[in-house]
Design a protein around this nucleic acid. Structure first.
Lengths: 329, 329
DNA sequence: CTGAAAGCGCTTACAG
DNA sequence: CTGAAAGCGCTTACAG
């Protein structure tokens, strides 16, 4: 179908070896050879075959992106779509493609990545230790995003969840709030801990009844709001540790005639694009999804390009999170 | 590194051919051979090498997803992220990976797709005819999403933009509106035409001053609102032919003390997740992004799997669009 | 039903 | 600087 290196060689009157050298710009070749090859390649409309190259170099030039959340696809979640967008753009800059899989069956995803021989993968979902070990066994470099299961020789790019959450709660405290509700994904330990500590440091007793664990979705936020609505006394502020949840909370409160921020203050987490668009605009913890994505691929590429030495390249980058005060508090 | 078919063959005491047959479940093999091979494969932790297979079968099992918009990445736009999500999920079901590229340089993307030998690609962006012809020349099947440049042997999955937009304007007309503004991406010819026709069919003169062409973004929506605000008389309704634009319009109107829908009605287009979350919840034209994504990969797979015959498989699927009336009108 | 052999399109030592 | 040859890990006729 499409021309191969062999066709080019024949037309240029040189060997395949020479063609390969000039096309990949490696090794030595004469200016004359180069011209003939280039000319022939253009004439034949030659495009390189990454598959065949990968066969020998063991590098496909593709990185994998894996995402799932409790067996549900979340690729369209604003947080992840922005992350993926940054990943794809950065990878493209470095001439890498990104291969995406989401599947309820995570084992199948791993197999696919292995079969496709990706050079490395970015894990954007919560993974268990044994899953990480499979990657390690398969000798596939990984970098984990916003993740805390430690495993050797993996890199981490994360947001300062603890700091961000602490700031959020501290801010609420400073505003005079003492009854502060928390709605949090049970996997977000850092945010939960920060909430506890901030309270503790400021002499506010921790009240279990003020904490509601649930998924990071709008509907779950509504549920959380209902949970608080069911209590004899409403918290004066709610830290919904995710913007989608925060929006659900506000909507449900409004539906029950409760004004935000007049009656209850709400702060979210993530600063998705919609946070500033919503009304009231969300006070939230800003997470730099674009930078996270960018650093994740950079870090991964570093692993990939230094496979030779078996040193532990595991590095951990934590990006600062900052509170953005808007209208919901 | 990882075990190959050869290792499995040795351990199982059969030939590579036999291993290949049982592993890919093709051709004939005895039950006995199967057991030995399976056992050996498991023991060695064998995973197939899709690259090597692609080398001979000429099928990588990957499809490409290309997106860009006037040289800007839009992967994180809610419309496209939902589309991609559906594409990835559907592809996964059919055991295909999806390789994503976004680049300002679209030629480079095409080269990458060719080099990676994707089996086909889904084009989610506006493409010019010559770009489509490159795919055709490279013999890569394509399916275009929401796209109108016709090219032979390509399939189209689109939304009934014309019908949806017509319904939206008709609805506004029925509500008694006569001065209806339009804010529209210049590439969305169908929406524009539907606007004109609906007006025409109902005896309302077309007024060029009521039409503002711009990009489908929040900021551009604000600009559009300002444009109308600058006129001596505000339209009584604005059809912002994209939800992001519609939100921008509403925000800007509000900022100027104008109530939606009390003073001005606004209808959007797309029904992104945020449309129903925003306040006022957007009246908009619902586009089934998930179904579009699903049908696009199904259609593409059909092309891929019937490459033998050279018949024109170009098919065009148009999905109905329906108006969803909420609070902004 | 099974195995030996060729071949997919490249890259990379190895000689020259 | 250049070419012949081996080999990457598979699949697929072809014999048997």
């Amino acid at each position: 179908m499409s021309a191969t290196i062999k066709d080019v060689a024949r037309l240029a009157g040189v060997s395949k070896s020479t063609v390969s050298r000039v096309l990949s710009n490696s090794g030595k070749y004469s200016q004359e050879a180069k011209e003939k090859v280039m000319q022939a390649a253009k004439e034949l409309n030659y495009t390189s075959n990454a598959i065949a190259r990968a066969m020998v170099t063991k590098q496909t030039g593709n990185i994998g992106f894996l995402i799932h959340h409790r067996h549900e696809p979340v690729l369209s979640h604003p947080f992840y779509s922005q992350l993926l967008s940054a990943v794809v753009e950065t990878a493209t800059v470095y001439n890498h493609g990104v291969l995406v899989f989401t599947d309820r069956d995570i084992q199948k995803c791993i197999e696919n990545f292995q079969a496709q021989r990706v050079d490395g993968v970015i894990l954007a979902s919560r993974m268990t230790r044994d899953i990480l070990e499979r990657f390690s066994a398969a000798n596939i470099p990984v970098v984990l995003v916003n993740h805390s299961v430690k495993v050797e020789n993996a890199s981490y790019v994360k947001n300062d969840d603890y700091g961000g959450a602490y700031d959020a709660v501290y801010y609420l405290l400073k505003q005079g709030h003492r009854r502060i509700g928390l709605i949090c994904d049970p996997d977000e330990r850092q945010r939960y801990e920060a909430y506890r500590q901030a309270l503790h440091h400021h002499g506010v007793a921790y009240d279990e009844a003020l904490v509601y664990f649930t998924d990071a979705k709008v509907e779950q936020g509504k549920q959380g709001a209902r949970y608080f609505l069911g209590q004899s006394r409403l918290p004066s502020a709610i830290f919904a540790a995710n913007d989608m949840t925060a929006i659900g909370v506000i909507k449900e409160l409004k539906a029950n005639g409760i004004q935000v921020p007049h009656d209850v203050s709400v702060v979210g987490f993530d600063d998705i694009e919609f946070a500033s668009l919503y009304e009231p605009a969300l006070t939230t913890v800003k997470v730099d999804k674009t930078l996270i994505g960018e650093l994740a691929v950079r870090q991964l590429l570093r692993h990939i390009n230094s496979e030779s030495r078996n040193e532990d390249l595991g590095e951990e980058i934590t990006l600062p999170a900052s509170l953005v005060v808007r209208e919901s508090t």
